[in-house]
Computed example of a mutant assay.
Amino acid sequence: MTALVATFFGIGNLRPAPGTWGSVAAVVLAVAAYEAGLALLVPVAAVLATVAGFWAVPRYLATSTSSDPSEVVIDEVAGQWLALSFTFIPLWSHNVEALTFGAWPGWAVPFLLFRLFDIWKPWIIGRADRRGDAAGVMLDDLWAGLFAGIGSVILAAVYHIWLKPMIG
């Protein structure tokens, strides 16, 4: 059970770039939930994945020789769902379908920003990653998800307030 949760049902065993595969799986599941009318499930799922990750990661690490094995992707899933929550809730409140042409930035931008912050690891994200423990495995991705979500909202505001009116 621990390995299933930590690897997000084996997604973390995909190569190359298991963290990216975990993020892609999280986006696909979130968009599917959104399109099924369950948009509010995304922030709930972020919380559940976070709790599950804080349960599974220390147990998984106890059996691993690495302090952050690449196959552990529950942290990416939790962080990605956190980032998506920032855009999915406003899209949902405005009755916008996630797969319409104009809504794709609502899931693509959080995905791209999350991957950027997760790989680059600036500031507090890197500090959490350098902890070298189970909490650090989870925290760096949660920080990356938070910053990706905030960045997505800022970029949406720039577009809707300044760029869109200028474009027409």
Results as ranks from 00 to 15, higher is better:
126 G>Y: 11
127 R>A: 15
148 A>F: 11
140 D>I: 00
147 F>M: 13
139 L>R: 12
140 D>F: 07
127 R>K: 15
146 L>R: 01
124 I>A: 15
147 F>S: 06
142 L>C: 07
156 A>Q: 13
129 D>G: 10
146 L>M: 14
139 L>M: 14
134 A>V: 12
136 G>N: 03
128 A>T: 06
143 W>E: 04
121 K>C: 13
153 V>F: 11
150 I>Y: 00
134 A>W: 00
144 A>K: 02
120 W>A: 06
143 W>V: 06
157 A>N: 11
120 W>P: 06
153 V>H: 07
124 I>T: 15
131 R>F: 10
148 A>E: 07
141 D>Q: 05
140 D>K: 05
127 R>S: 12
120 W>L: 09
138 M>C: 12
159 Y>S: 05
132 G>M: 04
130 R>M: 12
129 D>H: 15
158 V>D: 00
137 V>Y: 01
153 V>W: 13
144 A>C: 00
129 D>Q: 14
125 I>Q: 01
140 D>Y: 06
154 I>Y: 00
150 I>G: 03
152 S>G: 09
151 G>F: 08
131 R>T: 13
153 V>C: 14
124 I>Q: 14
154 I>G: 02
126 G>I: 10
133 D>K: 03
149 G>H: 06
147 F>A: 06
158 V>H: 00
145 G>L: 02
136 G>A: 01
133 D>Y: 05
135 A>H: 05
156 A>C: 12
120 W>K: 10
155 L>G: 06
122 P>K: 01
132 G>T: 05
126 G>N: 10
146 L>G: 02
127 R>G: 00
146 L>N: 04
122 P>D: 04
129 D>V: 02
125 I>L: 03
134 A>L: 09
129 D>Y: 13
157 A>D: 08
159 Y>V: 13
142 L>T: 02
155 L>N: 09
143 W>G: 02
124 I>E: 15
156 A>T: 11
159 Y>N: 13
155 L>E: 04
152 S>Y: 03
151 G>D: 05
135 A>G: 14
146 L>A: 07
121 K>Q: 08
140 D>G: 06
134 A>M: 09
132 G>E: 02
159 Y>L: 11
149 G>V: 02
126 G>L: 12
158 V>F: 00
137 V>S: 01
154 I>T: 00
154 I>C: 13
156 A>R: 12
143 W>P: 02
123 W>G: 09
128 A>P: 01
151 G>R: 09
144 A>F: 10
157 A>W: 14
145 G>H: 02
154 I>L: 15
149 G>P: 07
122 P>F: 01
131 R>I: 12
141 D>V: 02
157 A>G: 10
142 L>R: 01
142 L>K: 03
146 L>T: 09
127 R>I: 10
156 A>H: 12
137 V>A: 01
147 F>T: 02
136 G>V: 08
132 G>K: 04
146 L>H: 01
153 V>P: 02
151 G>T: 01
121 K>P: 14
156 A>Y: 14
152 S>I: 00
138 M>P: 09
139 L>S: 10
123 W>Q: 01
146 L>V: 04
144 A>Y: 05
149 G>M: 04
135 A>L: 11
132 G>L: 03
150 I>P: 08
159 Y>A: 00
121 K>S: 09
159 Y>M: 08
155 L>R: 03
124 I>H: 15
156 A>W: 11
143 W>H: 09
155 L>D: 04
123 W>M: 12
138 M>H: 07
131 R>C: 11
148 A>L: 11
143 W>T: 00
145 G>S: 06
